[in-house]
């Protein structure tokens, strides 16, 4: 029996008359990659905002490792192990690559009400950060300002920062956004290498990536789950094809 890491139960979020999340239920099991796909405006990002604690749902529940976290703040969810990456790269652009990751390492080492010692000389922060950068292939870029990285590198840094918080579940909001096919393929390969080590909920537009990575896929249209299953079932599902995948 595999363990359910995340359970979303009848989540509803309304913006005025628009139901952005319409009774969504899904679960993510340990070590799987669960992908959420859907056309623009399907409410994928709204869903991830609710899962990460940035907006509050109107009703429904979110359970993380069997504990209800629906009311928990974003920082507390992160400490619990539920960590997100951003669709629009939101690294600290005026910080170096290493500082970006070191800050995430620092976050998991308890409170930061430490006022005197220089953080940028602290090996207990620098070393783990450097190791993670080596892992994602940014090891030789550590002293570059994050804002000066190429787009693909910034997306990698985004993942590195999330990994540095020691997540139990990674919420990846379109990690391939804005990438050309080559960069997208190398990111796909990288995410595949993380498979088994991390549980991931992946929101992605790039269908090649989704079908290459996902163990299960949930399809969201107008805030509703219209289908959920293994990639083969989704590929064959007529409703999904007409709503989203096109007829080819």
């Amino acid at each position: 029996m595999t363990k359910t890491v995340l359970k979303v139960d009848n989540l509803v979020k309304r913006f005025g008359g628009l139901v952005a999340t319409d009774h969504v239920s899904l679960d993510v099991e340990q070590n799987e990659i669960h992908a959420i796909i859907g056309p623009n405006g399907a409410g994928k990002t709204t869903l991830i905002h609710q899962l990460s604690g940035m907006i509050e749902p109107d009703s429904g529940a979110i359970l993380f490792n069997d504990v209800e976290i629906t009311q928990l703040s974003a920082p507390s969810r992160c400490h619990a192990g539920l960590v997100r990456s951003f669709q629009i790269t939101s690294i600290l652009k005026n910080f170096t690559v290493l500082d970006n990751v070191a800050l995430a390492v620092q976050a998991r080492q308890g409170h930061s009400f430490r006022f005197w010692k220089a953080a940028q000389k602290d090996q207990t922060l620098r070393q783990p950060a450097q190791e993670i950068l080596d892992e994602v292939g940014l090891g030789d870029r550590s002293h570059v300002l994050a804002g000066n990285l190429a787009h693909g590198e910034q997306r990698r840094l985004e993942i590195a920062v999330a990994l540095a918080t020691s997540p139990k579940l990674l919420l990846l909001d379109e990690p391939m956004a804005g990438m050309d096919s080559e960069a997208s393929e190398s990111m796909t390969a990288y995410l595949r290498s993380l498979k088994g080590k991390y549980t991931m909920l992946l929101i992605e537009h790039d269908m090649d990536a989704v079908f290459a990575l996902a163990d299960r896929i949930t399809v969201l249209v107008y805030g509703q789950v219209i289908a959920s299953g293994i990639p083969e079932e989704i590929r064959k599902n007529a409703e999904v094809r007409s709503a989203y995948l096109g007829d080819d």
């Binding site: 920082p75 507390s76 992160c78 960590v83 951003f86 600290l92 910080f95 998991r108």
Partner: peptide, 15 residues
């Protein structure tokens, strides 16, 4: 970090 991007800081675990 919070001056640069407060949302990011919260999402990596800083209140």
């Amino acid at each position: 970090g919070s001056m640069s991007n407060d949302e990011r800081m919260r999402s990596i675990g800083y209140p």
